[in-house]
Design a protein around this nucleic acid. Structure first.
Lengths: 246, 246
DNA sequence: GTCTATAACGAGATAGAC
DNA sequence: GTCTATCTCGTTATAGAC
């Protein structure tokens, strides 16, 4: 009986994956706003009502695609961080930035789904906030490790910004100095500004050698955050980025 | 006969404006991907075929909306720059950044149209590139004036980036040092990273006091570009941002 | 229990005849 | 410009296959 259950479960997983794959194809062709359950079903040789066994509504399918996309960039960022030398904060930082950009360039439509215009009529459920925070948590972990190993120069903090910095730090990274936490959030959004401009075509006829341009800008972001070229004494343990999911 | 022609021309302008207004309303409700000529016509009490007298296709209507949006942010940026003290590069820079952000927050759907995900199936014609460059040209003008008045410290330029920096500078700002030109382009995209994250909801539950946060980040961007708090001798003439349109 | 298929709803888009 | 016949869509109810 386990084999029957196993077979069913396997079939379910496969069909779910096929649905999402086909939906991703449609995403590329039509955009998220025009994602159609019926078209997905038609393309898979199913009838539209059958899809409801797998996704209770169109918005749930969208949510699954969004979560998958956030998880994919997040995993790419974590992998790049893990592959970089632990004692080299700037190396880790730029590796993560490049991983995010490479993923975005390779998956422009999924990138647009999560970092582009919001889908009209769709409101993201709570399920997306965990995956959405993975890239940010990697950046925070890099800063945390650098801090523990004297590999960071704290960025300046203006008095006007101090209250918000403290509030924000308490929320997203209670173990980091407020000045570092706000700067990280700003750098995080600026990183995606670079990526979005490239993916969305704003650099057309302006930036040619995008690779070099991006790497240079990412490195400058690392300096902006205060990361130093090399830690004086290596951090003993590398901080695992917390998943952010309950 | 001029009066008849004048009346006709006036009516045409009014109807064109009404069509665009209604289209903007639909943009907010349905998104650019679902902009429908028929729905616009219906709402205006016209028949869909009548719209083709004003816009030869859906894409042309979209283009008009895009050009209007770029012109609106561009004008806001130019106005803010003009209102700032000419001898204060950082003041001008942050004023322009704030103007862009304020416009974006006030017009999130038009902002999404020009700086969000590309509309599937739509390719921007040449008409959009002039208006699209207005904000960038304002930032360039600020840097140019600061340079002329000794109000800027040239940002560093890594050897790897030099070729691309020279290419890029020749294209977008031939009178600026390559190091400054690339840094400006990076800062330009990072500015829109900050704005997009706020408008698209990525700062939800993360940044609370968005005003202070943004102003602080914009000021740091100004420093990043090399702008100095005050020019030693005031620039005699303020550079007009070139319109970029032929 | 788990799935798929049929049929239908209300709403909207689309094409073409008039 | 109007009308109509025919599409699409998301979603549900129901019935039957495994």
């Amino acid at each position: 009986m386990t084999s029957v259950q196993g077979a069913r479960a396997r079939a379910r997983i496969e069909i779910t994956a096929a649905i999402k794959d086909e939906a991703r194809t449609q995403l590329a062709a039509e955009g998220a706003a025009r994602l159609s359950l019926r078209a997905v079903a038609r393309e898979l040789g199913m009838v539209s009502s059958a899809l409801y066994r797998y996704f209770p509504s169109r918005d749930d399918l969208l949510t699954a695609l969004i979560v998958d996309a956030y998880d994919a960039v997040g995993a790419a960022a974590e992998r790049a961080d893990g592959a970089a030398g632990p004692d080299d904060p700037i190396g880790r930082w730029t590796a993560v930035c490049r991983a995010v950009r490479d993923w975005a360039v390779a998956h422009p439509h999924e990138y647009a789904l999560i970092y582009g215009s919001p889908v009209p009529g769709y409101t993201a459920p709570q399920d997306t906030v965990g995956p959405a925070s993975r890239v940010g948590l990697v950046l925070i972990a890099i800063a945390r490790d650098a801090l523990a190993a004297d590999g960071i120069a704290l960025p300046p903090l203006s008095p006007e910004l101090r209250p918000e910095a403290e509030r924000l730090a308490a929320d997203v990274a209670p173990d980091l100095p407020p000045a570092l936490a706000v700067t990280l959030v700003a750098a995080w959004s600026q990183l995606f500004g670079l990526v979005s401009f490239e993916v969305f075509g704003q650099f057309n006829r302006i930036v040619e050698d995008r690779d070099t341009f991006f790497t240079s800008a990412a490195t400058r972001l690392a300096h902006e955050v205060g990361l130093l070229p090399r830690t004086k004494r290596p951090a003993r343990t590398r901080t695992q980025p917390r998943t952010g999911r309950a």
